[in-house]
Each structure stands twice: as C-alpha cells, then as structure tokens.
Amino acid sequence: MRVLALAGRRLLSSLPTLLLILVGIFLLLQLAPGDAVDALIAQTGGGADTRAAAEMRAQMGLDLSVPAQLANYMWRLVRLDLGFSSIYGKPVSTVIFERLPATLLLMLSALSFAFFFGLVLGVLAARRVNGWPDTLISTLGLVFYATPSFWFGLMAIVLFSVHLQWLPAGGLEEIGAGYTGLRRTLDIAAHLVLPTLTLGLIFLAIYLRIMRASMLEVLSLDFVRTARAKGLDETRVVVRHVLRNALLPMVTLIGLQAGTMLGGSVVVESVFSLPGLGRLAYESVVQRDLNTLLGIVFVSAVLVICVNFVVDLLYARLDPRITP
C-alpha cells in the first residue's frame, strides 16, 4: 500500500509537467501556417468563400483570442474530448484509439525482446569480462547502437521477405484472409517479427551495455564475496544474489526510454506500414492535421507517464529499501 501511495504521489507530481507540455505544444501549433478550417477547405477541394470560412471558424471557436482558445481546449481535454479530425472525418479520440493497440503491441514486444536478450548478453559479457565473448558482444552492441533503425528494417525486408520469403514485408495481418483465433494470433506474430527486431535493436544495445556495467559493479561488492565464501557455486551466486541487484538500473532505463521508444515507432511503423500511433503522427504532419497531432502528443505524454508509474511500482518491488 505504501508503495502504491509513493508511486501515486509521483504520478500526481507529473500533472504539472503534462500541463506544461500541452500549453507549450498548443502555443507552438498556433505558429503553424493554416488552421483546421483551411485544412478542411483544402480537403474538400478548396473554393469555399470567405464568409463560409469565417462562419466555420466562429463555430469551431477559432475566432477567439489565443488564451480563450487554450482555455477551451483545456476544458475539452478534461472531458476527454480531443476535438475533430478534419482529415479522417472522425473524432480525434476515435482515430487515436483505433491506432493505439498496434503501437502498444509493437512497443511491448520490442521492449521484451530488448530487455531479455540485453539481460542475457550483458550477463554473458560480464562473466567473461575482457575475454573473447565479451569483446564480441560489446562490439555487436556498438554496431547495433550505430545502426539506423529504418535502414535495418529495409535491409531485413530485402533479406527475409524478398529473397528468402520467410516473413511478410509489412502490415499487421493478412488482409482478407479472414483468420480467426489462434491462426490470426500466429499471423499477427509473424507480421511483428521484423518490426520488433527493428525497433528493439538499438534498445538491445543500450540494455546489454548497462547490464554488463551493472553486473560488474555488483560483482565487486562485499556480499558477493560472502556468498562465494559460503561455498555457493558461481551460477547460484549470479542468479540468486547478483542478478536481482544488477537489475535495478535496467528497470530505471525502461522508464527513461519509454519516450524514445514511442518516437522510434514512428519510423518503424512507416517502414512496415503498420497501422499504429507513430504512423498516424507522421500522416498528420504530412497532411497538416494539427488537431490530431496535438491529440497524439497528449496521448504519448500520458503513455510515458503511465509507463513510469509502472516502473516505480516494479522498482519498489525489486528493492525493498525504497519504501520510506
């Protein structure tokens, strides 16, 4: 309970941050050329007269002063109304919630992939520090870190989809195949293999580096010597004593990287044409649908804050000292 209260306090303290982001982005978008009415007129083929445009502006509250518009927007947000997307012809919240599952699925699978393999490779490297497995793993980590994700994705498509034809090149599932149940799950999983690898690669590099450093740090502490002196074999020392302590920085990193991962999904979803939030962000920039863009900013910030809330809970569970 006390853990929950602590994490809840952290959650409350992130509300001003959220407010700051929204006000900042709202004011920033005021500088953008054209407004929702212009976008709407352009969408319907242009040619609306100025009287009609002025009427539409009045109806949408766009003729008010900037502070009044901001207040309006905030009040609508409190009621979870993100406005109307002129490009998609639907409320922004509907558009976003249609796209959210694909992004969450991609982020979750990329995170699991990066976390698990980062952990395993980091432990392997730390066990044989400065030996050839360590050198190999550390070099791989450096190369993965330097690889542009979209380029890796394209090359993976060339190799696995075009030449070997093992995996599909894009999309979330086979459209029109009408799979259901387990068959559909497997189909989606096959479509997600390459995007997961692509998005997870850079995080794998970061996780393995942090895991290696953190293992080395913990391995040099006194309690490890005690555990060894007690006669435990090396595997038990690592698994029971070192791993749990070395895991803390990795968990912190999940919270820190949540935003970066969301940003990375913009590129990855474009490469593999996945119908996710990132692709929606890209489309709304290209089509100047600023209402949707603002909505995506809001939802992403909330998502990052939620991830950090979960990380706080996890952290307290791993380290009992953090419950003042």
């Binding site: 941050t17 935003g259 970066t260 991962m261 969301l262 913009v266 863009l293 900013v297 992403s300 990052v304």
Partner: peptide
C-alpha cells in the same frame, strides 16, 4: 523528456 523527442521534432 516526457514528450518523445522524435514526436517533438515532427511538431
């Protein structure tokens, strides 16, 4: 830091 930096870049 809360706002994904690539998203901010897009904005």
């Amino acid at each position: 830091q809360t706002l994904p930096n690539f998203l901010l870049l897009l904005v």
